[in-house]
Design a binder for these strands. Structure first.
Length: 560
RNA sequence: AACUCCGUGGUGUAACGGUAGCACAACAGAUUUUGAUUCUGUUUGUUCAGGUUCGAAUCCUGGCGGGGUUGCCA
């Protein structure tokens, strides 16, 4: 990840950093990743993580992990732990720089007192509804609160008593005194502190007043000497307020907020609220359901961290709100897995083949290549015997013109084994094909072409019936059937893909597959990449389909 | 008709006044003990109208289109 060639062009944020370094504005670069611990990280966060930690790596700076934990009613340590785990999995390290906004509560309180004394903040006793209506709207200016010009001493006293717990939730708030007529609504006397009598996951019951995001973020950046505070576009309108605090409070440094567009993917929803809803309403099995765009979900699905990093590099950083093609992500996944994943044979939908001219009771250990892209991965032994399973799809009794696989009288290569010809089709009373009979050519051992120069058009995978391990295989498809489940009327849930999960309970695996450890992704030859799931055991493995191989045959069929 | 940000092939993303390039997707072909991979080729683009300039995707003006903003969420 670090030995790749430097990109020939830089995104606008890196250009800004270059300028700041060149002009001497900064002599180092410090970024931060500031999740709120109220949910699991998803692909959108991965974009931000790759940006912030990536910049720190490239510029020899550092990136802080700072939990933005100013709302105790929504936050929990469960999320803190999962977030840390996900960042590490992605391949990044915050070193010693783990912080919590709640670490700064004392400092922020002092600064609030400072603002009051400066005449730049006041305690407002209006109700939430009064504050809302007093703010005006996009067209109309707001009006001043009747408490706006109360004496400094009075605000000071009230604020201290807010902190002391004398008042109930929502009774009063601390507001900045900016401009109730400002075109940017964020500057119409924003709330700085609210009363919330709730246990905080770090500070316990020490506080009953909590600072708002806007009041917290920039000052936290300043305390940590963040140079470039990178966030998504929805905070663009907050920048003026971010700067207002830095201008009016004696902060120790001057960070700069820069916004970029968030990640959108088609066939996916990415908002925390919607992901939470999928989990709580049991449309998926949990935050780590392999269909979820959460980092824990895609990890369980088998997506390699390197693929996510490459993907984030490919999509770039801009201010344009775009929607990326899911195929781009899948391409990144296949690219890494094609290089890395060891190959095995597995038959998902088995049909028995009896090789009539193969000696009964004989077993041969066939040598198979582990990864043609990586010779150093070596070879393994796969048992071969008189009765094998092949994929039902690899046989057609009455094949169309371009079908290269097995059919009556036709010959194919069994991967790493022998040429096989189909001689006979056995059916049950209902006419269903229940078994095939065929013969092999002993002169093609290892799958070599025979001396007579005969060739076959196809190579298929197989598993020795007596040695096969039965397994459950979960075929995942996109969670949503429509490209933009968010758009249009109705709920995004209306767009759930009913076929997003197909469970196959009778798959047969080559025996080597039983020892693949949970979390490892392998290739089932000719089928796709599959990740061993934690639900499985050596006796009965469970595999999740990460992504299928490209399949030009299937594509041609669908078009035909 | 408030403020603000943004418009480059189907989808993303480069080009910093000088040949519109790259990736993905799509479509052909070659190779192949995975109908995979790999390789080669093809199709498709600067939102519009003016202006500045020898020269504009790029600078200016206006139009059109899209996003964000009216939490005591972040």
């Amino acid at each position: 990840m670090s030995d790749e060639p430097a990109p020939t062009s830089k995104d606008f944020i890196r250009e800004i950093i270059d300028e700041d370094l060149a002009s001497g504005k900064h002599d180092g670069t410090v970024t931060r990743f500031p999740p709120e611990p109220n949910g699991y990280l998803h692909l959108g966060h991965a974009k931000s993580i790759c940006l912030n930690f990536g910049i720190a790596q490239e510029y020899g700076g550092r990136c802080h992990l700072r939990f933005d934990d100013t709302n105790p009613t929504k936050e929990d340590v469960e999320y803190v732990d999962s977030i840390k785990e996900d960042i590490k999995w992605l391949g990044f390290d915050w070193g010693e720089h783990l912080y919590f906004a709640s670490d700064y509560f004392e400092k922020l309180y002092d600064w609030a007192v400072y603002l009051i004394k400066e005449g730049k903040a006041y305690v407002d006793q209006q109700t939430a509804a009064e504050i809302k209506s007093g703010r005006g709207d996009l067209q109309t200016p707001g009006i001043n609160s009747p408490y706006r010009d109360r004496p400094v001493e009075e605000s000071l006293d009230l604020f201290q008593r807010m902190k002391a717990g004398e008042f109930g939730d929502g009774v009063m708030v601390l507001r900045a005194k900016v401009d109730m007529a400002h075109a940017n609504l964020n500057l119409r006397d924003p709330v700085l502190y609210r009363i919330v009598h709730a246990e905080h996951h770090r500070t316990g019951d020490k506080w009953c007043i909590y600072p708002m995001y806007d009041y917290t973020h920039g000052q936290s950046d300043a305390i940590e000497h963040i140079t470039h505070s990178l966030c998504t576009l929805e905070f663009e309108n907050h920048r003026a307020l971010y700067d207002w605090f830095l201008d009016n409070i004696p902060v120790p440094s001057r960070p700069r907020q820069i916004e970029f567009s968030r990640l959108n993917l088609n066939y996916t929803v990415m908002s925390k609220r919607k992901l939470l809803q999928l989990v709580t309403e049991k449309h998926v099995s949990g935050w780590d359901d392999p269909r979820m765009p959460t980092l824990s979900g895609i990890r369980r699905r088998g997506y390699p961290a390197a693929a996510i990093r490459n993907f984030c590099k490919t999509i770039g950083i801009t201010k344009f709100e775009s929607t990326n093609d899911f195929a781009l992500l899948e391409n990144a996944v296949r690219e890494v897995l094609n290089q890395e994943a060891p190959r095995f044979m597995a038959v998902l939908d088995p049909i028995r083949v009896v090789i009539t001219n193969y000696p009964e009771g004989q077993v041969e250990e066939m040598e198979a290549v582990n990864n043609p892209e990586k010779p150093e991965a070596g070879t393994r032994l796969v048992p071969f015997s008189r009765e094998i399973f092949i994929e039902r799809d690899d046989f057609m009794e009455d094949p169309p013109k371009k079908f290269f696989r097995l059919s009556p009288g036709a010959e194919v290569r069994l991967r790493s084994a022998y040429f096989l010809r189909c001689d006979e089709v056995i059916k049950d009373a209902a006419g269903n094909i229940v078994e095939l009979r065929g013969s092999y050519d002993p002169e093609t051992r290892g799958g070599e072409n025979p001396p007579d120069g005969r060739k076959v058009k196809a190579t298929i995978h197989w598993v020795s019936a007596a040695h096969a391990v039965e397994a459950e295989v979960r075929l995942y498809d996109r969670l949503f059937a429509s490209e933009a489940p968010d758009r249009g009327e109705g709920s995004f849930l209306d767009h759930l893909n009913p076929d997003s999960l197909t469970v196959l309970s009778g798959a047969r695996l080559e025996p080597n597959l039983a020892s693949v450890v949970s979390g490892e992704t392998v290739q089932f030859e000719r089928l796709g990449y599959f990740c061993a799931d934690k639900d499985g055991s050596q006796e009965r493995p469970v595999f999740n389909r990460t992504v299928g191989l490209r399949d030009s045959w299937a594509k041609a069929q669908n078009q035909g």
